[in-house]
Design a protein around this nucleic acid. Sequence first.
DNA 1: GTAGTCGGTTTGGTTTACAAACTTACCTCG
DNA 2: CGAGGTAAGTTTGTAAACCAAACCGACTAC
Lengths: 163, 163
Amino acid sequence: MGAMSDIQPRACPIADTLDLVGERWSLLVLREVFMGVRRFADIQANTGAPRDVLTKRLRSLEAGGALERHRYLERPPRFEYHLTPAGQALEPVLIGLREWGLRYLPDPPPAPRFLHTCGADVVTRVVCDACGEPLEGGGLVTVREDGVTGTPPPAARVTAVRR
Amino acid sequence: MGAMSDIQPRACPIADTLDLVGERWSLLVLREVFMGVRRFADIQANTGAPRDVLTKRLRSLEAGGALERHRYLERPPRFEYHLTPAGQALEPVLIGLREWGLRYLPDPPPAPRFLHTCGADVVTRVVCDACGEPLEGGGLVTVREDGVTGTPPPAARVTAVRR
DNA sequence: GTAGTCGGTTTGGTTTACAAACTTACCTCG
DNA sequence: CGAGGTAAGTTTGTAAACCAAACCGACTAC
């Protein structure tokens, strides 16, 4: 069992999204633009990315539709980077990473805040799309395209190689 | 100002979290474990990660507290990987990436589903922690530690070549 | 005219990724 | 018994990516 037809990596939007934003520095570049930093030199300084790599990331984020490159000065050519609506839609990912770090890193660094206009921090919630109920640890089941469920008890497979 | 104390990259839990889960394959490994795939060979097949890299990623995810390595057979030694509570807490990140892909990729692939026990898909929502109001596009302000706000109008800076 | 800014590109060395083959230790089948 | 398979890696050699630093062109400020 197992090697029936599973020779290819799984087709999945998580993987495809990571092709766009999963390379090193990409999400940190987006973090900066979210925070209002829009120029090459500032993004470079705040992320620490090497300049040539930063150039590549900015180009691929632009090509992927997350950023737009705007010329703010004709001669010499100077540019600013802005979020597209698609880029803004990556906010939950950034917030999720931020929250995880604050909660689970051994020594969380000072955190830039993402605030609602009312003054409080924004947070991610994973909720059921239908009933709106939040998931906290339990209540989650993953399903692959083939219909096999994921999260339930590990008992069945544990003894699959004898005992 | 500017070059006063801004020589270092920004201290930020997003960056620190990405040190743990931001390398190539790491989040796909977690995706698999979320979906109930727990063994080396299966994770390798479903992600497509090279075997040696997968070994390194599993070790660093374990060291980072997201996974636990569990021996299910003494001789020969065989292992399964399980999510820790910290690992489970990365769920919003995965869901966020999945949703973004489904919505913004030109040709979204068939998506493994993450279901609530009631049968509906789970989704991420970024909400205000205080008033619970969801953010949709607007209503967001980012604040850096130094108090400078991020998202407001880009008008002021556009012609600013000073400094 | 000297220095500095900005948004890169170029250069050369180091690190990492990658595919494929190999290893160890079992188990199953005929 | 011996051949083949499985599982979780490790080893090997090569290709790609990353990185720091230097360089560049077109300006501006002094």
